[in-house]
Design a protein around this nucleic acid. Structure first.
Lengths: 412, 412
DNA sequence: CCCCTTTGTCAAGGCTATGGACTAAGTCCA
DNA sequence: TGGACTTAGTCCATAGCCTTGACAAAGGGG
């Protein structure tokens, strides 16, 4: 009894191109009315009519349908401005439940989320290094639990996973860590749960989360996820951009450094060889023996220098830790500067584990970005650390689902 | 008697959001039918119905309207496949005339173009270093001549000009060379000629030209214009992307080099300091005195080394010329690699004066791009020199007009 | 020559938005 | 307190668009 159709239905029509119909008009206006109510609730039918240009009659019809489907409710009356007091309308937070899933490196996190991005229920399952069919099976276990834990109408499922993902077809083209190739993940889960399913790259999901729930008021933003790897999600003109082969935002392997480090992609000089958690840790381990003034100095086994220790040292203003981390930020800043010059976004949001290095790290990124692109553009672009952690991918997957299924993009 | 509305009309409605109406449905389907006929002409009403999913009845209605407006004509009958022979339909090349204008550094070029991108009439006017109101006046002179030279229904005017251009409002935000700031160029010309007017950045116009007339069969392509300056135009998912402040594609000022050259933007190390015509020429002049084996050696006045001489030397395999040009290509290749990694386009098309250096230059760009981003992506991306020169900006401006006004994007 | 297929048109019907009239329910002012 | 006025929401007739099914036109094939 979904209000709007998932991507599979579009295949049923033999025609390649999309035509317009009267029903399409109705659907469009219904989504429009829902969006206006959602964005400016509480509001009245008359206000919605003014905002959309539709007649009060048409709005009333759409609202009637929305109320029947539970997506809208009447919540008392508002103040009169000289005439009959308006009946206020609202989209109940829990009119639908959304399931969002974050397929991470070591575990799968999932949550039940409401239409405003509030997490209602959380659950996780470790991956224990499993991949292929076994990893998929664990994801299904998690989904089973989440579906069972829902007590509201379920809108569908959204997943964020590393790799090259074709969101239009729900296909995982290539996910190294999970050993998935051309896996029709969306179709498979849709058949199992009989719900709309959307799949996106994890960085892209993060971008959608910031777009939907970050309250940036922008329709052009880049989210750069820096942790074990580096990837970006691009929301351009209010739409997720994935590129021709789902590879948009794969900035981790941009050549930036003149070092000779071999990247997991097989080439040298990649951004990932200098700016990931692993990279800074390696660098610290390399330099520690020659840095007697550092708290990281004097360990016999390099493995003793953990990421947590590096963070502590950094926060204690340890010279070596600062140097290593800020040098990585330098390279990241140059790449981000190039991105700003190419795409002129209004926001660049940094997320991922490396954001623990906080303001000094951010400042170094900003400084170098400033040196790397037109001042006019860089100065006008807000480079910030995201505030949605650690659920950002879960929220983004849910946002993808909500946007595609209901046409809602909360903070656009 | 335009079939579809230009951007100004959208202001007349008080509502902010766009509603759907029955008339909107009709308009949409009419554009759809026109597009199908345009793309696969000659074709029949029945074929259009099959391609769109509309009924034959609806298609007939739309075609009737299109024939009345001259945008479609019946051109005989096709072969029967066992029943009545279909009446073939076509969009006449000259159903409308388009005016495209390229506001260059030293002159303004304009042309009358038909719906297939054939240039029917050309005209130019020198700028003689004029800017501001005087430059605008020259453009109007050119337009007056072009409008007078048209003998077919005129669809409108498209302009490509350097600078930051907001195409949505037809405003020139900032054009250094012409000394234009926040100039409502579109509005002004629209009032003067009472025709739809669209304005875009020149690199963006070039991108639209390649998209529309380049027959690449792609909806994600980047056009990089390398001449006096360096700029890119981005067509992403079939739409021109301009960024938040119309600054998307301003890659000329990406930091790439460790040199100390001061760029016109005030910073150092910009791509434009190493890869433009001016930059390679300067570099050749610098190195010539120390290169006795070069044909460029031994000139007393550096000014004697012209761009034309550099090109000759390059083509004659002069070592110095090769080194200078291919070194510039190296930096360009790295930037293009980064773009490919960020945006995963299917094509990167190089245009502008620097393309005279041809295949060796292109090969150097490709080689470095390959080293600068994921092999998977770079190998799948076609990096080529455009074939639409020298009219590419004129054609792109016309393509912008045609796309926005008729919904046609010829080679999508 | 007859049957079948395909094309294009026609008329009836269904769906959606619109516009004016109408009711309900407030404010404002005398 | 009451009447004029304003605003919200609904009702109903109408217009516009697409669809459905029927039908004529026109061609192929045995």
């Amino acid at each position: 009894m979904a209000l709007f159709s998932p991507w599979t239905k579009s295949k049923s029509s033999g025609a390649v191109l999309q035509k317009a119909t009267n029903q399409g008009t109705r659907l469009f206006n219904q989504r429009l009315v829902l969006k206006v109510i959602y964005d400016s609730s509480p509001t009245s039918r008359a206000d919605v009519a003014r905002a959309t240009g539709l007649t009060r009659t048409t709005v009333s019809g759409a609202v009637e349908h929305l109320i029947r489907s539970g997506l809208t409710e009447e919540v008392g009356t508002g103040r009169s401005t000289g005439g009959k007091a308006p009946i206020l309308l609202n989209v109940p937070d829990e009119a639908r439940h959304l399931i969002g899933v974050d397929v991470g490196d070591s575990r799968v996190s999932g949550a039940i989320v409401d239409l405003r991005g509030h997490v209602r229920h959380e659950s996780q399952v470790p991956l224990d290094g499993r991949d292929g069919e076994q990893a998929l099976s664990r994801i299904e276990d998690l989904l089973d639990r989440l579906v069972a834990a829902t007590d509201k109408p379920l809108l569908g499922i959204g997943l964020g996973t590393p790799g090259f993902i074709d969101t239009a077809t729900g296909t995982v083209r290539w996910a190294v860590n999970l050993d998935w190739h051309d896996l029709a993940l969306g179709e498979r889960l849709q058949k199992r749960y009989r719900l709309p399913v959307y799949v996106a790259n994890d960085s892209q999901a993060a971008a959608l989360a910031e777009y939907a729930f970050g309250h940036h008021g922008s329709s052009n933003l880049l989210v750069v996820k820096v942790g074990e790897g580096i990837g970006a999600g691009l929301v351009l003109d209010g739409r997720l951009f994935q590129g021709t082969r789902s590879g948009a935002g794969e900035i981790g392997h941009t050549a930036v450094a003149d070092n000779r480090r071999i990247c997991r992609c097989g080439r040298v000089g990649c951004l990932e060889t200098v700016a990931t958690m692993h990279a800074v840790l390696e660098r610290a381990r390399e330099l520690a023996p020659d840095a007697p003034d550092s708290v990281l100095h004097g360990t016999t086994d390099p493995e003793d220098i953990t990421f947590a220790r590096l963070v502590s040292a950094f926060e204690a203003h340890d010279r070596l830790a600062r140097e290593v981390v800020l040098d990585s930020a330098h390279h990241l800043g140059r790449t981000i500067g190039a991105l700003i010059g190419s795409l002129d976004p209004s926001h660049v949001i940094l997320v991922g584990a490396m954001t623990v290095f906080g303001d000094p790290w951010l400042a170094a990124i900003r400084r170098e970005a400033q040196r790397s692109a037109l001042t006019l553009l860089v100065d006008a672009t807000r480079v910030e650390i995201g505030k949605l952690t650690p659920n950002i991918v879960v929220l983004g997957s849910a946002a993808l689902l909500m946007t595609r299924e209901l046409g809602l993009s909360p903070a656009a």
